[in-house]
């Protein structure tokens, strides 16, 4: 860690905000706080944070609106905090560009783990984009569009390759059905979640040691998929 990483906590419940702040400052993060979307927007512009913790139910505007506006100019990771009753909002937030979510109630250990995972993906200095992605025993050569396991190429169809490359390029991030469909098939297949499931099934057969208990392509039921390298 080169500089102290700063986290912006946007949460209107004072008790929850206080416990999050103390949990994060305790491990060396510098933390700023906001309790409204308006305050969060100005803070994020004046003191750009390395990560934003965002509660969806805020008093002035919806957290999803904030994500949409913020994504227009910044790629800083956003971790959404949601209550269980807001299932639909969670998907909307991820569609709008949030990176991950945490359902209340959550423990401090889990919160810190998620934050670390997101910061690892987005180091302070923008990573130089790499044409080679690695996970497990696999290497994806994005230039020649070849996937190898232990040096041996695996045969993947066009769609399977695109799906895998997109997943692997976003490790740890929850990708919604909608995001995957738009990215891999283009906008025309938006409603066909079935395609996605079928192809994820095929992909798991090809890259997972045990397709029924996958280690890399994890299902987030009702939301989408998360890729773990």
């Amino acid at each position: 860690m080169t500089a102290r990483e700063s986290i912006l906590v946007v949460e209107d419940e004072r008790q929850i905000r206080e416990f999050i702040v103390s949990a994060l400052t305790g491990v060396g993060f510098s933390v700023s706080e906001a309790s409204t979307v308006a305050h969060a927007a100005s803070l994020s512009a004046t003191h750009p944070p390395s990560l934003i913790l965002l509660d969806l139910g805020l008093p002035d505007r919806s957290g999803i609106d904030f994500i949409r506006d913020y994504r227009a100019w910044s790629a800083t990771p956003i971790l959404v905090l949601s209550a269980r009753a807001e299932e639909r909002d969670k998907v909307d937030a991820l569609d709008a560009g949030a990176d991950d979510y945490l359902t209340k109630p959550f423990g401090i250990a889990e919160l810190r783990a998620r934050i670390r995972a997101l910061l690892r993906r987005h180091p302070l200095t923008q990573a130089t984009a790499s044409a080679t992605l690695r996970f497990g025993d696999h290497v994806i050569d994005c230039v020649n569009r070849i996937v190898r396991r232990n040096g041996l190429p695996i045969h993947l169809s066009q769609i399977e390759y695109r799906l895998l490359a997109f997943l692997a390029a976003n490790p740890g991030r929850v990708l919604t059905h909608r995001q995957l469909l738009t990215q891999v098939w283009g906008s025309r297949a938006l409603e066909s979640h079935q395609y996605l499931r079928v192809y994820v099934g095929h992909l798991r057969q090809k890259i997972e040691a045990s397709p029924a208990q996958p280690k890399h392509i994890l299902t987030e039921i009702g939301i989408g998929y998360r890729f773990e390298p």
Binding site: H193, R197, G201, Q213, L218, I221
Partner: peptide, 17 residues
Amino acid sequence: LAKAWQAIEEVLGVTIR
């Protein structure tokens, strides 16, 4: 019910995880 054709092992896998 938001029904869709789904591999049952995929759903079971999430529970077991």
